[in-house]
């Protein structure tokens, strides 16, 4: 019973809180640009408005185009069950859930890419191609990050790797942890198509990655896509926040407050990065990911050197 309630609560938290992060990012960017910016709740308005629209579909498309938003949304929602939110333990945890976690995102991405190819548009083919190429590279770095955490925590279950911090006193493993965090942050930017990888606000299809892939979706489908990408940011971000802030408090309310404050802080940081960095040229992105790879590798080497 408690399990069901906790699952439902997670569900609600994911669904409700995730668009807020996008709002915070937008507000931060507006602040840096010296503008007032859209209201914090703008992403919610967008999603609600899109949900009320009618569906328009291309004649070329098949059911895959219609199903992909739903499949990717369910996949990222399920991924949220595997990860601890701060001090809130994951309802499902087992030895090796990391791989399921990573591959659920793979499932979501595969269907989004197929949906883009389904339209037969050259632009969407391009977007699909870029998305899947860069995520293929970033997935490797993600696994390397997991490996460092496995080496440090001697465990192979997400909840113990990042949630249970008995292994991770900063004094003992500080340098590798810092490296993992930096490398993971870079991957977070890649996976969620933020600047410097991809500019969600750009208006030229040729330069987009994620946005150009979902050009043809509209109405409720596009709402699902927007929401799914917000949830993805939330889930991957909660990995980051949980790793960064070890919780000590025994009160549920304080824990929740710290966690959500952490998530908001992450959104602010992403907003700052987006404000101060220009986006990279497309052919520099592999170098960016390689940089993250080398950092994670360095972290692994330090962790191994410590272990002996």
């Amino acid at each position: 019973m408690i399990l069901v309630v906790s699952v439902l609560l997670r569900f609600v938290a994911c669904l409700l809180f995730s668009p807020f992060l996008l709002g915070v990012i937008g507000k931060t960017k507006a602040f840096f640009a010296g503008k007032k910016g859209p209201p914090l709740l703008q992403p919610y308005y967008d999603i609600v408005k899109l949900l009320q629209k009618s569906g328009v579909y291309s004649l070329t498309t098949t059911w895959i185009f219609r199903a992909a938003p739903l499949i990717s949304m369910s996949a990222v929602l399920i991924a949220s069950f595997l990860i601890p939110f701060g001090d809130f333990k994951a309802p499902v945890q087992f030895w090796g859930d990391v791989i399921l976690f990573a591959y659920l995102f793979g499932l979501a991405r595969f269907f989004t890419v197929l949906a883009a190819l389904d339209t037969g548009s050259s632009f969407e083919g391009m977007g699909a191609n870029r998305e899947i190429v860069f995520s293929c590279l970033s997935e490797v770095v993600l696994f390397l990050n997991f490996t460092v955490l496995v080496v440090l925590s001697k465990s192979f279950s997400l909840s113990q790797m990042i949630g249970d911090r008995s292994w991770a006193s900063w004094t003992a493993v500080g340098p590798s942890l810092i490296l993992v965090i930096v490398s993971y942050f870079m991957i977070l930017l890649v996976e969620n198509s933020r600047i410097p990888i991809d500019d969600p606000a750009t208006h030229l299809e040729l330069t987009m990655i994620h946005e150009v892939m979902v050009l043809d979706h509209g109405g409720p489908d596009y709402a699902f896509i927007l929401h799914a990408s917000a949830i993805k940011l939330f889930v991957l971000g909660s990995f980051f926040v949980t790793l960064l802030i070890p919780f000590q408090s025994h009160s549920l309310v304080i824990n929740a407050a710290i966690f959500f404050a952490g998530m908001t802080g992450l959104a602010v940081v992403i907003g700052i990065v987006e404000s101060v960095r220009a986006r990279l040229r497309m052919n520099r992105i592999p170098s960016f990911i390689t940089g993250a790879f080398v950092l994670a590798l360095f972290g692994l080497i330090i962790a191994l050197a410590r272990a002996s």
């Binding site: 328009v56 579909y57 190819l117 299809e205 043809d216």
Partner: peptide
């Protein structure tokens, strides 16, 4: 959500061009 309005079926958006030819696909 979809049921409330009739669904429209048209060609894929060609990003401002006249139409998409199969040869333009990836």
């Amino acid at each position: 959500l979809i049921k409330r309005y009739p669904v429209r079926l048209i060609g894929t958006w060609a990003c401002g061009y006249e139409l998409l030819a199969p040869r333009m696909q990836y």
